[in-house]
Structure formats: C-alpha cells, structure tokens
Deep mutational scan, measured.
Amino acid sequence: DHWEIRVGDITIHLKDVDEEIIRWVEEALRNGDDLEEIKRWVEEVLR
C-alpha cells in the first residue's frame, strides 16, 4: 500500500502503513502539530 497525506502545501508519502497511523497523522496535521515531530513519530512506529 502507498499513502499520500495532503494538508495544505504539505504532502507526506507513506508506504505499508496501518490506517490507524494515517488517521493519527491526519489528525495531528489538522491540529497544527509540528511536522518534524510527526515524521519522527511515524518513523518510530514503522521501525
């Protein structure tokens, strides 16, 4: 699977990601969370 999350001008590409993570990231972006923080979290989860 390949996911693209778009929020404003930001697009995040994710592969082999659980839908729950996608929802979490979308929510975090909508809440204005720091992008670097989100990326770190996702990388942590995917490890």
Rank of each mutant, 00 (worst) to 15 (best):
L46H: 03
D33C: 14
V42L: 15
I21K: 06
L46E: 03
I38S: 00
I10Q: 09
L14T: 04
L35D: 04
R23S: 05
D9E: 08
D16Q: 12
E43C: 07
R6K: 14
R30G: 08
E37V: 13
R47Y: 00
W41D: 01
E19Y: 11
E37F: 14
E20F: 15
V42A: 06
W3M: 12
R40Y: 03
D34N: 14
E36D: 11
E20R: 14
E20G: 09
E36K: 07
E44T: 03
H13I: 15
I12C: 03
G8R: 05
I38W: 03
V25E: 00
G8K: 04
E20N: 14
T11M: 06
D1Q: 04
E27P: 00
K15E: 10
N31Q: 12
D34L: 15
L14K: 04
E27K: 10
D18Q: 13
H13F: 09
D16S: 14
I38R: 00
V7K: 01
R30S: 10
V17H: 07
D16V: 13
E27V: 09
D34A: 12
D16F: 15
R30T: 08
L14H: 03
R6M: 11
W24E: 04
V45M: 14
E36Y: 05
D9A: 09
R40C: 00
R6S: 05
I22N: 03
D16T: 13
E44I: 08
K15C: 09
L35G: 05
A28K: 14
R30Q: 08
H2V: 04
R47S: 13
W3L: 12
W24S: 08
K39M: 13
H2Q: 10
I12L: 14
N31K: 13
R23Y: 06
I5W: 01
W24Y: 12
R30M: 13
T11N: 05
G8E: 05
E4C: 06
E37Y: 15
V7L: 09
E43R: 00
K15T: 11
R6W: 01
R6L: 06
G32H: 14
W41H: 15
V42S: 00
A28M: 13
E43P: 00
I5D: 02
H2T: 04
V17N: 05
E26H: 03
K39F: 14
E19D: 13
E44D: 12
H2F: 08
L29F: 08
R47I: 12
R47K: 10
I5L: 12
I22P: 02
R23E: 04
E4T: 03
E20K: 14
L35E: 06
N31S: 13
E37K: 14
W3H: 07
W41R: 15
E26Y: 04
E37S: 15
I22M: 13
L14D: 01
K39R: 10
D1S: 04
E20I: 14
